[in-house]
């Protein structure tokens, strides 16, 4: 292995860059000398899109702009319009009036959807409730996931791949089926857990455990479904950890329990953060689990959004709900993105 500075300093070398450089550079030089020098960057910029490197970037970039970013702008736009009995069921934001005498453009920014969200108790509560449930679920995932990941990373090298496969396997099976399995277990009337507990006489048949259609069911559902997302980044992180660090800590007089807290845990923080983001962010907007498991009494924002959209057909309100949800989540999402980008850079 060489740590040659030359090698480290070399810029990302040319796989595609070779051709587009010379021609475009020359063209730009020539254009800059000519009469339309001010157009040079625009012309060269446009052309560079169609040469090697530009085209490679443009393909996924274009797709993501069209089907990821622009849709959000449309959501933002529609969140300012009013619901209407039409197809599509909302008013246009921009109205062009041309009555023969006058021609003008009307822009109607309607803030009533946001007002609804901020003033109506149900929405505020739904947001807070979702955040609370997601946070508690994340903590529970960490509580169960960390010891698992730790045990896996410390297990014998020969059985590690098997353990890893066992964690991944549920992830490959349908999420819906896994939620369904819990419904079968937790049902109040004729659920397996209650049947079992009644049969061994722990509880009486008249007073079964009511778990399904409560917040408890939602915690179970989220923790169960998202556990692999917590275990995998943690395992990846812990497995890479240099075990001699713990030996060094022991050698320097640190007891194993203390070494765990002062060496292992701090080193596992990138994995902990990644795992928490992977659980928390999607859990805030979770729809399927509350819809199937927690009944009508637990109000979360994902369901509220879906009801506004599907049952109420109030698309502008649903749009506003998702804009607010996104605003709440934008900071964790950006932190997640920064962290992932940094992890990838570190692997370089």
């Amino acid at each position: 292995m060489s740590m040659d500075r030359d090698a480290a300093d070399r810029p990302t070398a040319a796989l595609i860059t070779h051709e587009d450089g010379s021609f475009l550079e020359k063209l730009e030089m020539r254009l800059r000398r000519g009469r339309f020098a001010f157009l040079a960057p625009a012309i060269v910029g446009t052309l560079s899109l169609f040469t090697g490197r530009g085209a490679v970037i443009a393909l996924p970039y274009g797709f993501l702009l069209a089907f990821f970013l622009i849709p959000f702008l449309i959501v933002l736009k529609i969140s300012f319009s009013e619901t209407a009995l039409s197809i599509p069921p909302y008013t246009e934001l921009i109205e062009v009036v041309d009555d023969g005498f006058e021609y003008f453009v009307n822009i109607k920014l309607n803030l009533s959807n946001y007002w609804t969200i901020l003033s109506e108790d149900t929405y505020v509560r739904a947001y807070l409730n979702s955040a609370k449930i997601a946070a508690i679920s994340t903590a529970l995932c960490l509580l169960i996931g960390f010891p698992m990941a730790y045990a896996m990373a410390r297990a014998d090298e020969t059985i590690r791949p098997t353990l890893l496969m066992l964690v991944i396997l549920p992830f490959w099976t349908s999420f819906l089926i896994r939620v369904y399995a819990w419904i079968v277990i937790l049902k109040t009337e004729g659920g397996l857990l209650n049947t079992f507990l009644i049969s061994i006489g722990v509880i009486s048949a008249d007073d079964p455990l009511r778990i399904l259609n409560t917040e408890w069911a939602m915690y179970i559902g989220i923790v169960y479904s998202y556990l692999p997302f917590m275990v995998l980044p943690l395992y990846a992180n812990l497995e890479r950890m240099d075990m001699t660090l713990l030996e060094a800590a022991a050698d320097l007089g640190c007891r194993p329990i203390k070494a765990f807290w002062v060496v292992t845990v701090p080193l596992a923080i990138p994995g902990i953060i990644a795992g928490c983001f992977l659980v928390f962010i999607p859990a805030v907007g979770e729809y399927v689990i509350p819809e199937l498991m927690s009944g009508d009494n637990v109000r979360v924002i994902g369901r509220k959004l879906f009801t506004d959209f599907a049952s109420e057909r109030n698309w502008p309100l649903a749009a506003a709900v998702s804009v607010v949800l996104l605003m709440i989540l934008v900071i964790p999402i950006m932190l997640f993105q920064r962290q992932q980008a940094r992890l990838q850079e570190a692997g370089r």
Binding site: S2, M3, D4, R5, D6, A7, D9, R10
Partner: peptide, 8 residues
Amino acid sequence: PSGCGKTT
């Protein structure tokens, strides 16, 4: 030595 420009 490393960084002397030989690889470049």
